[in-house]
Write a protein that binds this DNA or RNA. Structure first.
Length: 253
DNA sequence: CGGGTTTGACCGGCGC
DNA sequence: GCGCCGGTCAAACCCG
């Protein structure tokens, strides 16, 4: 009887040990994945910053185009940002940290969704405007086009860093256009860097999510939520974990 | 009551 | 000149 119990306990211990080993391997795999994501995120951020600087240079060098227009009609820099939202929601409000006053709404020709017009209401001397419209391709994505630069800090900013539209302090822009561009029908910039390599849809959504938050932790949480909800990512992750388990337990195969 | 939203009217640029 | 279209205005309305 005691002998039988001892054998049973031993088997249980072995099972727990094996499970512990499996979890350890899984943890290691996930740590590597997280590290890889962090690295790619950093690279992405640097890439965006580089593109922004290049666009600034282009704007400066395109003064000959601007010169042909009357001074009054020269538009300030346009910045395009993308926000993921609930597809069912009719709201055109995006949370970018600033306070906006809506002054108009229009149905445009190229998009069945209405376009909303906002002015910055945080400071009377701030004349930044933004247009918000759902993407015709993906109705769960709101496209916000910013015009001008804020001359006041973002509420909650601790160090008075430059305002959002041109500087990605912690959030990221995924697309922007120059002030001289007349064709706004397509996003000018599509970032080619992938956070997780194989799944473009998840990566694209992740880029969108990165835009709608100024908090790195939130970004990471949103990334995890998004990626864990993606079936393709889950399959890829499961395959990686399975490989890891098999490599640790070759006798089981 | 003050600030924000809605919505129809209006204006100006542009192409035909 | 005319019509179309995007952008803005402003009165009415809503809400805390």
């Amino acid at each position: 009887m005691d002998l039988q119990r001892n054998v049973s306990d031993k088997e249980k211990m072995q099972e727990i040990g094996a499970e512990l080993e499996r979890l350890r391997a899984e943890n290691k795999e996930l740590s590597l994945l997280l590290h890889s994501m962090n690295h790619k995120y950093t690279t992405l951020q640097a890439h965006v910053e580089k593109i922004r600087e290049e666009m600034d240079c282009m704007n400066e060098s395109s003064h000959d185009l601007i010169k042909r227009q009357p001074i009054e009609s020269v538009k300030p820099n346009l910045t395009r940002r993308y926000f993921r939202t609930n597809e069912d929601s009719a709201s055109l409000i995006v949370k970018d940290g600033y306070h906006w006053r809506k002054y108009g709404q229009k149905i445009t020709k190229d998009n069945p969704s209405p376009r909303a017009y906002f002015r910055c209401s945080m400071a009377p001397e701030c004349h930044v405007k933004k247009k918000v419209q759902r993407s015709p391709d993906d109705k769960s994505v709101l496209v916000a086009t910013y015009e001008g630069e804020h001359n006041h800090p973002l509420p909650g900013e601790l160090d008075g860093m430059t305002s959002l539209p041109n500087i990605s302090s912690t959030g990221l822009m995924v697309g922007f256009s120059s002030s001289t561009s007349r064709d706004q029908s397509q996003p000018e910039v599509t970032l080619g860097l992938a956070l997780c390599g194989s799944n473009h849809e998840a990566v694209r959504s992740t880029e969108t999510l990165i835009n709608e938050t100024n908090n790195n932790n939130n970004i990471m949480e949103e990334c995890i939520t998004l990626l864990s909800g993606d079936p393709n990512f889950r399959v890829a992750l499961a395959a990686a974990v399975a490989r890891s388990v098999l490599s640790n337990h070759p006798s089981n195969s």
